[in-house]
Amino acid sequence: MTALTQRSDWARTAAARSWMTGIAVFVVVRTVGAWWLLYVGNRNHRTLHNMLASWDGQWMLALAGRGYDDIPAHLTDAHGQHSVDTAYAFFPGYPMVVRAVDVLPGFSTYAAAIATSLVAGAAATVAAYRIGQWCALRRWPADEARGDRAGLIMAVLFAATPMSVVLTMAYTEAIYCAFAGWALWMTLEKRWVEAGSLALCAGLTRTTAVGLIAVVLIAAFLHRRDGWRPWVGAAIAPLGWLAWIVFVGVRVGSPTGWFQVQSNGWDTRFDAGAATLRYLVDTLSLNQTAGDVITAWVILATMVLIVLAFVTRLPWQVSVYGTLAASTVLLSTGLMNSRARLLLPAFVLLTPVALALVRQSRTTQITVGVATTVTSAWFGAYMLGIYPYAI
C-alpha cells in the first residue's frame, strides 16, 4: 500500500469519525439544553413550542409560510412599526429552506423550521470539529490523535456556547453557521468551487457573510495561479449577498435600501463600536439583569479571543473571518441584548481555547466540557424562559 493510499484511507476514516462525533456531541449537548429549557418553561408557564419560535422566530415562520408580502401586521420592527418593507430586513435563505422542507408529508411550517435548524446545527458542529482538527494538525502534523481531540473539544465548545440554544430554534444562526463553517473549511482545503458555493448560500442567509466572502475572495486571489477553480470560487462567493442587497435596493428605490430598512427598523448601523462601549459601561456599572451582565462578559470575552486568534498564530483565514464576523456585531448599533446570539457566527474564535485544552489532562477537558454544557443550558433557558427582552 502506497503512502498516498494510506493517506486517502485515513482521510476517509477521519471524515466519517468527524461526522459521527460531531453529530453525537450536538445531540448530547443540545438534549441537555432542551431538557432544562423544558423545565424552566414549565416553571414559568411557557411551552417549549412557543419558546423555540419566539421573537425573530415568528418572523421566520411567517416568511416561510406566507412570503414577504403577506406578513401579519402584529409582526413589527424594534419600534413597533410595520411597513411594506419591514420584512425585507430578513435575508431569504433560511425561510426558503424551511418552505422547501414544509412541502414534505407530515411537516408543518413550525416542524420544518425546527428540523432545518437541528440538521443545520449538527452540520455546523461537524464543521467546528473539522476546523479545530485542521488547525491542530497544522500545528502538530504528526499527531493525528491530538487533532481528533482538538476537533472534539471544538465541537463541544461550539455546541455549548452561551446562546447555542438558537441552534434548535426557528432562527438563522444554525444554517448560517453550517454554511460559513464548511465554507471556511473548504477554503482551508483549497476547494474553491465548494467554498464559493457555500459562501453564496451563507450570503443569502445573513449579512454577517460579508466577512466570510472577504476571506474566500482574498484566499482565492492568493491562489489565482492554481488554475480556474480559484477564479470560479471567487466569482460566485458574493452572489448570494449581492443578489439580496440589489433586490431590496430596487424594491426600496435606493442602492442602500436594505441598509435603510435595517437602520430605520432596528437602529442597526455602523458606529465604530460606540454603542457597544456604552452598553458595556452601563451594564457592568448599573444593570442588575443576569442576561445583560452575562452578555456584556460574552462581548468582552470575544474581544480577548480576537487578540488570542492572532497571538496564537491561527491560520489567517480563521483569524480574519472570526474577527470580521465579530466586528459586524461589535462595531454597530442595534439591540444590545441580542449580542450573545449575534456573536455565535464568530465561533471559530474559540479555536485557541480548544488548542490550549488539548494539551491539558483528560480530567480537565471533561470538566470544561461539562461546565460549558451546563452553563449553556442554564443561560439559554434563562434567556428564553425568564429574560423579558428579545434575544
Rank of each mutant, 00 (worst) to 15 (best):
V353N: 05
G334H: 09
L350N: 03
L355M: 10
P352S: 07
L342C: 07
A326F: 07
T351W: 02
T351F: 02
A325R: 00
T372Y: 05
L344E: 01
Q360W: 14
M336Y: 11
S361E: 13
V348T: 09
G369R: 03
A340S: 14
T373V: 13
V348S: 04
L355K: 08
L324F: 14
I366D: 09
V348W: 04
R359I: 03
T351A: 09
L350V: 08
N337I: 07
T351P: 07
P352F: 03
A325P: 04
F347Q: 00
L331Q: 07
R339G: 02
T372C: 15
R341F: 12
L331P: 03
P352Y: 05
M336G: 13
L355Y: 08
T328K: 00
R362M: 13
R341E: 06
L324W: 13
A340D: 03
T328M: 12
T372V: 15
V348E: 06
V358Y: 01
S361W: 12
T363D: 11
R359N: 15
P352N: 08
A326D: 02
T373S: 15
V368H: 09
T363W: 14
L330W: 00
V348K: 02
T323Y: 09
V329N: 01
L335H: 14
L344S: 04
T367Q: 10
A356P: 06
G334D: 08
V370D: 11
V374C: 12
Q360S: 15
L335R: 10
L349R: 04
T363M: 12
A346P: 00
R359P: 04
L330K: 04
A340P: 03
V353R: 05
L330H: 01
S376Y: 10
S338P: 01
S376F: 11
M336L: 12
V353Y: 05
L324C: 11
T323I: 06
A356K: 12
T375E: 04
L355G: 04
G369A: 12
T372M: 14
I366G: 05
L349N: 03
I366Q: 10
V370M: 12
T328Q: 08
L331G: 07
L331A: 13
V353F: 08
A356V: 12
T363Q: 14
A325K: 00
T323E: 02
L330D: 01
V370L: 14
T333P: 04
T323A: 12
T333D: 06
A356I: 10
S361N: 13
A346Y: 01
V329E: 02
S361Y: 10
T375R: 05
S338V: 12
V370E: 10
S332C: 14
G334P: 07
A346C: 06
R359F: 10
T367V: 15
R339N: 13
L324K: 04
V348F: 05
L344A: 07
R339M: 13
V353W: 03
L355F: 10
V348M: 10
L344G: 01
A325H: 05
A326L: 09
A346I: 06
S376K: 02
V374I: 15
S376H: 11
L324H: 11
